[in-house]
Simulated assay, not measured.
Amino acid sequence: MGLKDFKISVSKENILHNYHYLKELRNKEIIAVVKANAYGHGIENIVKFLSANGCEYFAVARECEAEKILKLKIENINIIILETIDELNFIKNNENVQMVVNSFKDLLNLLEKNVSTDQLHLKLDFGFGRNGVVEEDFSKLKKLILEKNLRFKGLCTHVFAADYDDMIAIEERFSQILEEIGKERFQIIHMQNSAGVISIGGKNCTHIRCGTVLFGLQEIGYYDPCIKRAFNLVGKILGTKDLKDLKYIGYEKKENIDIGKYKKVAKIRLGYGDGFSKRSEGIMSIINNKKFKIVHISMDSSFILVDDSVKEGDIVEIFHDLEESIKHLKVPHYEFLSCINDRIKRELI
């Protein structure tokens, strides 16, 4: 890594540990959710690595994400697009690309347009209010499936991060509908999100759908001590300056910043142009095993109050304490990590 570079280091060992641990925990195969650039970890690197280690299913949100995976030219993998797409020729022309059916109306349209049901995953919505066939359409759905003797690639739902009783109720209702329609009509069955994987067994499911937890990002209230974090955002100090010689720190007048006891400021090459939000002003970085506050963020640079122990070229880590960062930013980790854009290199190590 050069003096000016920031990068996201992703631990292969920790991702592989999480992958095998989760498979053994639920005794099911994994659908790796790699939307939003694999939650900031780098979609191309993650897909290549996990497919080489046995993962056959990957889920994305958008067609453009599926296209990135297709360009890798990996054999024997399945790509599931979770959102409804309009360009149906993209599905028809790529046998290993599948899509989720997010409403009864969508299903009728897909059947009319002759999209193969071997490329479709029916999704049931039990009140999440985002995507899926709603309960008021379940009777019409069952009637259509039975009358036309339809068989699909998959059946799924989404166990959102609710309380445990809600998860159990959804699991039971999903199993009931599955029995009514017939398990034999679906090649794979999946329901859990990351919180659901930690919390419930996934009754009657063949696969677990893992996103953030696969990368070691755990939600408050759904913590497993065996899961290991893979993400590490690091760079180097470009240089330091004495505060007494400065009128401004970046674009901010020095007098408007609480500099406390500090006499120096360090500059790093990371800013909101890299997806590092100005809302991160005030969070702590780690330099030489000590915490130092980031006090100003501009488009291409940020500034950190430091002491005499910090020198040019020292390694600095951002978002070291994810819980602390979540409290400061008031958003979940998968939001601010996914925002780090492609100006920052991702590297599997």
Rank of each mutant, 00 (worst) to 15 (best):
H328R: 07
K48M: 15
E281F: 12
C339R: 13
E136C: 09
F186E: 02
Y272S: 05
N96D: 09
R279E: 12
F160M: 15
L16F: 13
D166Y: 12
S175P: 05
D106N: 13
I227S: 08
K7P: 07
I189Y: 00
P332L: 07
E44S: 09
I30P: 00
S277G: 05
G40Y: 06
S9Y: 13
L348F: 08
N37K: 05
H320M: 12
L238I: 03
I188F: 05
V47Y: 13
A161R: 06
V133T: 03
V134I: 15
S280N: 08
N96G: 05
I30L: 06
S285N: 10
L16C: 10
F128Y: 14
L348T: 03
L110A: 11
S277L: 07
A38S: 08
G313S: 12
H207D: 03
S301F: 10
S301M: 08
K311V: 09
G235Q: 00
N89L: 15
I349F: 14
L178C: 04
I43E: 03
G42A: 06
I259S: 06
N149C: 07
E317K: 14
I43C: 04
N341P: 04
V115L: 04
E75A: 12
D5R: 01
A61Y: 13
H320E: 11
K148N: 01
C210P: 04
H20D: 07
S9L: 13
A52I: 08
E87L: 14
H20M: 08
I91Q: 03
L25C: 03
I326C: 07
L72N: 06
G273P: 06
L22Q: 00
E29H: 05
F174T: 07
D300A: 13
N288R: 10
N53C: 05
F160G: 14
I77L: 11
F160N: 13
G40A: 13
M191V: 11
L108H: 00
N114G: 06
L155K: 02
V134P: 10
S199G: 05
L178H: 01
L337M: 12
I43Y: 03
E83M: 12
M1A: 06
L337P: 04
K71H: 08
Q176S: 15
L305A: 01
G127S: 09
T84I: 13
S11W: 02
K254T: 02
F276M: 06
N204E: 07
Y222P: 12
E312L: 11
N76E: 11
E87M: 14
S11Q: 04
E147Q: 13
D242Q: 15
G132V: 10
L16S: 09
H190D: 01
L246H: 02
I318L: 03
E112Y: 09
I170Y: 09
K261I: 15
H20V: 07
F90H: 11
V295F: 05
F215G: 03
E180N: 14
S194Q: 02
F276C: 02
H320L: 12
L270G: 00
V306H: 01
L150W: 00
G132P: 09
C226Q: 15
L110N: 11
H41Q: 04
G282P: 07
